[in-house]
Amino acid sequence: MERTLQILNDLVETGVIKGYAIGGAIGAFFYAEPVTTFDLDVFIELPQTKGCIVTSSPLYEALKAHGYRESGESVSIEGIPVQFLPLYNALIEEAFSTAIEKRYGQTSTQVFRVEYLIAICLQTGRDKDLTRVKMLLEQSDIDRNLLKDILLRYNLIVNGIR
């Protein structure tokens, strides 16, 4: 796992990606009990290439050059299937821009704040997401004012907590 994070950090340092942040189930691991998952969800910001085109091709080419192969929707990096996800809406963009530094062993990494993980789960709204919301609310230290602000701005109050 630590080696996987080091590779992600290398991708940032070499400019292949502008930045990354961990979300999904593993993001929630930083705040709550572990639950079964098989993917590491990594949200990425890609640099613009010539002609202002944003493409993930250089990322996958760089990973391939290091011997990491695509398998289904993910790329196996040091034994861990990593799913690269774009910043697909305004809430995700905000979660990304406010991600915080966490450590895994000796390695620094970026993780979504717990308040954004909750909001994203409410927005996604699958059964497993709502279960994760309950878990995060029960087990993590939450900035209630920040959470309320996010939920209000993204019109998520009706779907979940007050």
Binding site: E33, P34, T37, K102, M135, E138, Q139
Partner: peptide, 27 residues
């Protein structure tokens, strides 16, 4: 059960990942 889950939540991330792998092996 609730207390145990809070104890699990407070574990270091490295230990949580080790638990995850054990759960993956079972599932």
């Amino acid at each position: 059960k609730s207390m145990r889950r809070k104890e699990l939540a407070a574990l270091p991330i490295e230990e949580k990942i080790r638990i995850l792998v054990r759960m993956q092996e079972m599932v």
